[in-house]
Design a binder for these strands. Structure first.
Lengths: 301, 301
DNA sequence: ATTTTTATTGTTATAAAGACAAAAGAAGAG
DNA sequence: CTCTTCTTTTGTCTTTATAACAATAAAAAT
């Protein structure tokens, strides 16, 4: 029995919910699909699908088996693609997902440069703060302020993602510059929304982490909007240093210092990571993009 | 082409380093193996093996492909086994790996009970502090004072693994009971060896982690031996509370208290975890063992 | 009850893999 | 340097398995 073929048929039947449609997808008669799936069931000694002439239902065990089979088929496809494209030129579609702020501020202009170097690589960039599940079918490269959720995912630290509190000089003269974290309660807060919700202002006082957030006057996942509101003197905002650098240099915003320092997470090393699947580093388009981004970002920021 | 068969042949050739031996393993003529591997290479458009009549060498791309194929075949085998054994009685060999101390103190007697409940499950227990790579071929269930390295690995918190400093009453009257961590320098230390080396005595003083270990008079990964030496008054030992409980209750050892407390890691929630692969929870023997251990340990400790 | 859709079964045809024999090629021994 | 030996590959035939096509059976909808 060609087990792999049977698995592909089975997966397609589950996805389409029909033997006929699955058969069409492979351009074979429905009878072939029926027989192969039956063979598979017999080999496994379990009923994967409950068939009636009108509808096909997946059994419980069939469902879990399907999910695993799907993963396996996908992995195999990726491995094959990696071998096939080995020693070929970087080309084809490259899907990149990035945090919005990083994408707008840094990534997009780098990618313009990348496109000139590798015109045959077609970029498909999506900016979102939701972390897409690398390892499924979606993206080749992801840029996130996070961690590596899986041992098959490689994480390269691109740059620091330290959050710093800032405010407009005008705001500070009007409201006073807070000297201690406890004074923040009497200020206005602009909050960065992460996928885990608005990021609070935390401080470690005598071994205890305390939330010292000011009352909120604005929450957004858009750093530029928050920065603009801060420049207009509407409040204090905590955002990544790399996002604020231009405003700080222009004097539009001013960094605030506290002791102990203000944080948005108990985790000490907040950083921007470039994530990709180890096995896909063999694919030329992925390899050159990873190498390019690491070289350009690590060198400049 | 029966791709899966070709992959199995290829993997076997890589492992045995010979077409002839691989063919023997599948009881087919060497010519079949040769043809299937050639088909595979043609389909992938790459040379996986450099053959000469005397030796078979794996190419670079062949090597990485092999590793991925190996994983895939293994996963498929596991998925198939899960389906096949679905709705069967718990039976067969069950491999459990545990930390030595936990194994001796808690696990082994629980497993005696388990064996009475499920006599058809043949236990294969190995006690070791090295963490074996769950997800490869080795163990079904692992018990470790750690984390989950992979998203496919499920981790259940069994119990706290808090390390506490203790010493014999005799030792304390002779040497004095240390009141502050700084006094520990003038004491004798008995150290637990973890896979990462002897575990130091740490303390967080004013936001800074400091090593306040006493000079070592003994290091071992055997908790009972360390406990005995401590009972004999040879020094202070830091070990998991569950390991020391009987000695504390018997009055042979006495807990030491510091402020801030002594730790062996910056990580706050040290715990004992039961680890298993999500997909293998479907296999009856794995399911009943996980459920049994979780129920018995969580209830009692 | 009849029509329609869908899965299954029967049978034949075709393509792929196995079996066996023989050839080609590389390493070591004499 | 030639011969022997071991291993991979090639040639040819046989076997097996899957596709193809037609026909049947079963369930839902009209």
């Amino acid at each position: 029995m060609d087990e792999l073929r049977a698995l592909r048929y089975f997966a397609e039947v589950v996805e389409t919910g029909s033997f006929t449609l699955a058969a069409k997808a492979f351009s074979v008669p429905p009878s072939s699909v029926s027989r192969r799936v039956s063979d598979l069931e017999q080999a496994l000694g379990a009923t994967l699908l409950k068939r009636s002439t009108r509808l096909v239902q997946v059994t419980e065990i069939g469902q879990t088996y399907y999910q695993q089979v799907r993963d396996i088929l996908h992995q195999l496809e990726q491995s094959n693609e990696a071998v096939r494209s080995y020693q070929a030129q970087p080309m084809g579609q490259l899907r990149i997902s990035s945090m919005v702020g990083f994408g707008e501020r840094i990534l997009l202009e780098l990618l313009d440069e990348f496109s000139e170097l590798y015109p045959e690589v077609i970029l498909d960039v999506s900016l979102s703060d939701e972390l897409s599940t690398l390892g499924r079918d979606d993206v080749d490269i992801a840029i996130r302020g996070g961690y590596a959720p899986d041992e098959r995912v490689q994480a390269i630290r691109l740059m620091s993602n330290e959050f710093i509190p800032v405010a407009a000089p005008g705001y500070l003269t009007r409201r006073g510059t807070p000297g201690a974290v406890t004074e923040l309660r009497d200020h206005e807060g602009l909050y960065f929304r992460t996928p885990n919700g608005p990021s609070p202002w935390l401080c470690e006082i005598e071994d205890q982490w305390k939330d010292v957030s000011a009352p909120a006057v604005g929450i957004s996942n858009d750093g530029k909007w928050l920065a603009r509101k801060a420049i207009e003197g509407q409040g204090i905002v905590m955002a990544p240093r790399w996002l604020l650098t231009p405003y700080l240099e222009a004097g539009e915003l001013q960094e605030l210092h506290f002791d102990p320092p203000l944080r948005i997470s108990q985790n000490t090393d907040l950083a921007v990571f470039l994530l990709y699947q180890k096995q896909r580093y063999l694919v030329p388009k992925v390899k050159v993009a990873v190498d390019f981004l690491v070289a350009r970002v690590k060198g400049s920021y």
